[in-house]
Write a protein that binds this DNA or RNA. Structure first.
Lengths: 257, 257
DNA sequence: CGTACGATAAATATCGATTTTATGTTGCGC
DNA sequence: GCGCAACATAAAATCGATATTTATCGTACG
């Protein structure tokens, strides 16, 4: 038998459950980030998750050339799964394919960051309102749970916290019955968090009262106050956005596009 | 030397030009559909375009299992390019990957259709407004040109018309300086057009005065009247949407999701 | 001395074969 | 007669190797 039996779960753009098994697309998206560096799943999936992490966290720099042979050695697998993972990441806008010259990590720029922020505000506003409108008691309880987990991990391992942080934000949207929208939000979240890692977690944005903001968003959502919740959520994003935008001015993180 | 020298162009989610060569992301997206069944480009790109066409047009049915060996024979190439093309299409939401059981064409449903329509209205509204705000004389001329080409192809080969139709709608948005947004609009367009093919071009939706609607949208856009142009564009989509939604009721096109 | 051409070297893209995984069937036990 | 388990078949996932392409370096020519 196989040690990595059938504990596989779906990823953002990666493998998807067979039809009918999962009727709750939110669970699909939520599971994506949580299963970060697991040893389970197909080789392609491991490559996908590992590479995504490397790029999002910044261990692979923006614009860096992604040599297949190098990655083959680094991840200990054949070339095929890596090629496939890179294809997947291409569609997540984390990797660019250059016609017959391989792949490279997507470049970063202030313009790119601002587009992501803008799209995120628009789409998450839509998703949050739909989510609140359809929120069941079960989803509400799940949301509280995920929020609590995030609190517990504050101050601990930054990567574990970021994972919980994403879970929280996706859980806010999870009740909306719109798989494509959720997937887009998930992708945009990853694109955004990449910039936060880029700015350095050292400048821990917890100096601001982010925890309070999260609490307030959660409260408004549970109260089913869509206008208030959305306003708070967008303010939350835009504040972090303005903070990061300021860093661009100083440190010239920009890479030629 | 090589017969297919360097005439390659970028596709929606496919290969992308080397850095610096193209600073106009709109051209990138526009070129995507036009180079439909070309013989140029890498094998992977040909597989991507060919498969996308087969699914969008409906020659491959919704929910149909996509056996790699079968496609290998049908397209006359190895398994690797096909796998990679399927991965790309997965992220376009045209193909689903089933954990360790291969791929299948994405299922269709009324819910799915409505989500696409809703997302399209939101995103194209945003894109059109940005596009009008930034529209240059060059873009305006290109837009008129593309519109004219579409008119010429009305009544001719349906596929050629649909290609020109997409070019027109993308040209409306092309001036907005937002690559990710454009890419999303392009993808959603493909998802939508698939439903139109599904409903059958026979029920030619030209019984309605679609040509007039296009003319009016074009006119408002050139007049830089964003509110009017957007209102007309969305009405255009929603009318077609309502028309297709009606068909769902009758013909039960739905496939279990 | 600068530029353009050509040869060499590296890396990618593709193919064919092997291994692993799922599925349908048949036989055995209850 | 029904349910469960082992087997056979088929498909997909992965690997290793080959061929094509691109980039780099050196050289010769203007």
């Amino acid at each position: 038998m196989n040690p990595r039996s059938r504990a596989n779960r779906a990823a953002t753009s990666g493998p998807v459950e067979p039809a009918g098994k999962i009727d709750n697309p939110a669970a699909m998206v939520l599971a994506s980030f949580s299963a970060s560096a697991g040893t389970d799943g197909s080789t392609t999936q491991r490559a996908y998750l590992a590479l995504r992490r490397l790029i999002v966290v910044g261990e692979i720099e923006a614009g860096e050339k992604l040599k297949i042979d190098g990655l083959r050695e680094r991840l200990g697998m054949g070339a095929s799964p890596i090629r496939e993972a890179l294809s997947l990441l291409t569609s997540d806008n984390l990797v660019e394919r250059i016609d017959q010259r391989g792949f490279r990590a997507a470049p970063v720029s202030q313009k790119n960051f601002e587009e992501i922020l803008h799209l995120r505000c628009t789409l998450e506003d839509m998703a949050l309102r739909q989510s609140i409108a359809r929120m069941t008691e079960g989803h509400e309880e799940e949301l509280v749970l995920v929020h609590h987990r995030m609190l517990r991990r504050a101050g601990g391992d930054p990567e574990a916290f970021e994972e919980a942080h994403k879970d929280f934000h996706m859980a806010l949207l999870a009740s909306c019955d719109a798989p494509i929208l959720l997937k887009l939000c998930s992708q945009l979240y990853d694109l955004n968090i990449r910039y936060r890692y880029l700015a350095g977690r050292s400048l821990n944005y917890k100096t601001r009262n982010v925890a309070d903001e999260h609490r307030d968003i959660l409260q408004a959502t549970i109260a089913r106050d869509a206008d208030l919740a959305s306003a708070r959520l967008l303010a939350h994003y835009r504040q972090t956005g303005a903070f990061l935008a300021g860093l661009f001015e100083e440190t010239r993180l920009s890479v030629p596009d």
